[in-house]
Design a protein around this nucleic acid. Structure first.
Lengths: 225, 225
DNA sequence: ATTTAAATATGATATTTGTCATGTTTTAGT
DNA sequence: ACTAAAACATGACAAATATCATATTTAAAT
């Protein structure tokens, strides 16, 4: 099993602020895990008891609404940490994590890392920076949800996914989402999401090959009001 | 001017985790300020360069949407800190803070407290706990915005305000909000908020005296679907 | 390869919400 | 106390979105 000290992934998250000693200790008790596409990593209400470092792949964080629909709140990719919040407050997760493609993650037990969080100020300040960013993004999502149309939100989601997670060599979005996933990001009915995507297609803003989506006119998408 | 070391307000926020020495130092350079109802404490995009400790009163944190409407993202009351996020990431504020009633705040310059955040792990862990809570609440707001009706969101906002900020002796909500504020919390048109409040009144769920609102049937509000 | 289930697509219609118009009440300022 | 402005309220209508029905296509399982 690879060692945290040498792992390049940690450069992308707060773990980089741990000392070599701390990393060596953590490395010994971490477990590596392969997660298949569609598999649930942890459920809403589940005690995570640790934090995941995503070595490869991408997952969605969602929360079940009372009307039975899942709302996707955030997506977490390679390089990022998963379960930071539960690590900090020791509570069970308020979100469900589901793999969007095959993933490889390392799991670090809470007992092993919580002391570092309380004693290594560099590390905790780094986590703090991360959370501040998350919080800012969450505020933006709230404003968008509250004030923008489905059409606008879907256009912005496409741009976000394009800019954040990139594209395949053929230009299609590298993260493959179902229409239902899009609906659950935007917060609308699946039929509405499908309808709007069809419109975008007719307007030449995107093209599709199966469920693959390619943005053809990103400026046009940005202009949507 | 009162001293931070002796100030009882800090018990309610992360400042309680500072050492006496740290508090004494901070106390010397903090400034106290009275803010009138309706006054803007800081604007969107403004560099705050410090953090406010709210000694009395309540304010709203809002963000201007492109369509010209203000979305209220959060409310901050007596005992809480204001501007934590900007303190951490050093960026200008992404939200505007406006007093909802007369306030008394203490301002601590960033330069004076940022080192404590990076060196006092107890303090930073405390801030971390706070942010984790904020983030969880933000997620809940996202889900509500995305999945619930205006009627439901307004009912829940009334309950939230009732439970979080309490009532006057006569049972009316102690935080006095305009109908426009309610609309900006719920993310709807002012007319829609007014209409729904009128419905609630007809249904006996609330009563009003001027703009004061009293919840008459909290169970009924909770049952709204 | 064939069957079955799931995902995508689209039309018709109902419901929700926004917008505009207009009137009334309340508040603030002189 | 009086006036102007702001906030509140409600109706009429338009626009956005959800829901239900039903094809069609795609993916999965045997």
């Amino acid at each position: 099993m690879s060692k945290c000290e040498q792992c390049i992934i940690k450069q992308f998250n707060s773990l980089k602020s741990l000392t070599t000693d701390e990393l060596t200790r953590i490395s010994k008790c971490k477990t590596s895990r392969i997660i298949k596409k569609g598999e649930v990593i942890f459920e809403e209400g589940e005690s995570i008891n640790g934090v995941y470092c995503v070595r490869d792949g991408i997952c969605k964080l969602s929360k079940l609404s009372e009307n039975g629909k899942d709302q996707i709140v955030k997506m977490v990719v390679k390089g990022q940490l998963l379960g930071q919040r539960s690590l900090i407050n020791g509570e069970s997760s308020n979100l469900q994590a589901t793999a969007l493609n095959d993933m490889e993650v390392c799991f670090i037990p809470r007992s092993e890392i919580i002391n570092d969080l309380q004693k290594n100020p560099k590390f905790s300040f780094d986590v703090l920076q991360d959370m501040a960013k998350d919080l800012k993004e969450a505020d933006d999502v709230i404003v968008n949800m509250a004030q923008k149309s489905v059409r606008q939100r879907l256009a912005e989601s496409l741009i976000y996914i394009h800019d954040t997670f990139g594209t395949n060599p053929d230009g299609t979005l590298s993260v493959l989402l179902s229409r239902e996933d899009f609906a659950n990001i935007v917060g609308t009915a699946t039929e509405s999401a499908i309808r709007v995507l069809s419109q975008f297609k007719k307007e030449g803003l995107i093209s599709t090959v199966g469920k693959q989506i390619k943005i053809e006119n990103i400026e046009g998408l940005k202009r949507i009001e």
